[in-house]
Design a protein around this nucleic acid. Structure first.
Lengths: 345, 345
DNA sequence: TTGTACGCGTTATCAG
DNA sequence: CTGATAACGCGTACAA
């Protein structure tokens, strides 16, 4: 019989067919140079013919590790993964596959059920490291992902205070620069549309805006703050709040692209013109923004690049066993100009 | 010692601590009712205290399967995962996690390197089933994912001719309906912006448009066809071709949202008004389209829903061991009206 | 250079 | 109801 028996052929099968021992086959595959050319070629040929593939579970069990990294992605309100999450996944995968690592993905809304799933994987020693794309490590029923003692790096969120190395985009610096750009155009009155109060990024970006204001004007007292959320819908309500203002700021900075989307759409429906009546800068680098009319200027944090970088850090830690010296790595976001910028009227 | 020794506690550790045998512990965990209440409670308590978690690799090895499903996602030109892929992943994950399955994700550009990665996973018996989000199963070096003999279902692409069950959106039916809507408004001259010639979806959607035309007008001869691609950029060039037409069709149907994005942006820049000068319908359900001005009418194929459905099919096949009776399952896409529709001038 | 033997942590079979 | 034991497939120390 030359055809693989039911698709399950083990080292032993190859050994039998080649008339050698299991360990010889194992070595022929793992250390080709520690074996005589003749038997090596024979073994390799037969393995090929029989369609041998190592059983990864057995290998993992023996080796005690899996060379698999787990990406924990958020799944707010049971709905969609954002496009930035998708890009981050692609960036992670791209890097780790060059290092012989595999990727598992779990989405969680941080309820007990979905958290447990992630925790099972981690405590089941099924993963070698974790990339956390979330505001905190999943925990439930008294177990916490932190306790698994696994290499872990946080992506886009600063979790350094938990001892987790974090790769984030340079929120503050970008916003300082954004204020500078608008000020250069002549703007003096600013509004900032924030996210929810507990959002790390929103906080950082607001701080950046205020820093920029201070640097430029010596005070941030004039800043109008409007609170929104993640969603496009809150961008709409932010627009209504903006429209209700008696003295509308000519420069608007939105903390996130989705929000800017709803904001722009709404103020334009109300009859305002961008950038004639107001200038708008946002943050995220959402692809679609480029094709709005007018297109919105944004800071592109290239999630794929961030993800790849985080993956690199993680793999290094796994391979070298370096202790997790927590620190924060800031990757600059790239300004992507749009048509939403002009001097004030 | 009450604290877990280095985070690696096995059945044996629990057994020793509880003064029972390994098999008793195993049963206490797997079949709580086949064991005396007293020892059960004791074992469970100690397992909890010690922080025991089953080693999944060992279990998989013993059981011969992994309850892990692999999602193969495309990664064209080394760039981003599309937003529809991200939503599909979320939909898959959401369903399978309720069934006790885990998700692995691999992105591939169908080069040898990345294909091999996917193939290793599959032939390494590390996965119980595959969801294919691609135009064909990965193959390289003479091995083909099909030969792994694994349950497999195709998502968004019709691979029934390869014996793979396929879950797709109802391209044809939606496009027939789209033509009907436009015709109801009074439109008589139509343009279709297609994707690349080898795209299954583009072909299907064009066929749908032609069917609709035939049903309504008895002929599809008047259809203007403009060839584009996946990208927004080709939507821009499609617009230029459209603008160059001497007698521009008043109804434009785009095969994909990204393309429609570029198209709309460009024709409006050229001074045309939508929907006054032309009506536009597209396909995909891209979230951002809702917030364009005007918003573009589109057919939403809800990738999350599709993904969940595909996952359900796959899990059923895995559990029941049903032979893969190949067939095509069409899920209707939902029409999402926008401001891009009006009677012709 | 090659073969033998053991153990990784589980689950399942079979006695008791 | 419980315990001893085998087996899943692999990698490796040790012996030949």
């Amino acid at each position: 019989m030359t055809s693989p028996p039911k698709g399950k052929v083990s080292l032993q099968d190859v050994a039998k067919e080649a008339g050698v021992s299991v360990s010889t086959v194992s070595r022929a595959l793992s250390f080709p140079d520690r074996i005589s050319k003749k038997t090596r070629e024979k073994v390799l040929r037969i393995a090929q013919e029989l369609g041998y593939h190592p059983n990864i579970a057995a290998r993992n069990l023996r080796l005690g590790h899996s060379r698999t990294i787990l990406a924990v992605m958020p799944n707010h309100k049971g709905s969609i993964i954002s496009t930035v999450a998708g890009e981050a996944i692609a960036g992670i995968q791209k890097y780790i596959s060059t290092q012989g690592y595999a990727l598992s993905v779990v989405t969680t809304d941080f309820t007990t059920a979905t958290s447990n799933h992630a925790l099972d994987l981690v405590f089941g020693r099924q993963v070698s490291g974790v990339i956390l794309f979330a505001a905190q490590p999943p925990a439930s029923d008294g177990r916490d992902m932190l306790d698994a003692g696994l290499p872990m790096v946080s992506l886009t969120e600063d979790l350094a205070h938990l001892g987790i190395r974090s790769v984030v985009s340079s929120d503050r610096q970008s916003m300082i620069e954004a204020v500078g750009r608008l000020a250069d155009l002549g703007h003096e009155r600013f509004a900032f549309i924030s996210g929810p109060p507990n959002s790390y990024h929103s906080t950082q970006r607001e701080a950046g805006v205020r820093s920029g204001l201070l640097q430029r004007f010596g005070t941030d007292a004039g800043l109008t703050k409007i609170v929104a959320d993640f969603s496009v819908d809150t961008g709409v309500s932010a627009a209504h709040q903006y429209l209700a203002l008696t003295d509308r700021p000519s420069a608007v900075i939105s903390w996130a692209d989705e929000v800017a989307l709803g904001f722009q759409s709404t103020v334009m429906t109300a009859g305002l013109s961008i950038p004639r009546d107001l200038s708008l800068i946002s943050f995220d680098g959402l692809h679609a923004l480029r094709f709005l009319r007018p297109s919105i200027s944004t800071y592109d944090q290239s999630p794929g690049r961030l993800g790849g970088f985080a993956a690199q850090l993680l793999v290094e830690e796994i391979e070298t066993g370096t202790p997790p010296e927590a620190r924060l790595i800031e990757i600059p976001a790239a300004f992507r100009p749009g048509d939403s910028l002009a001097p004030p009227r």
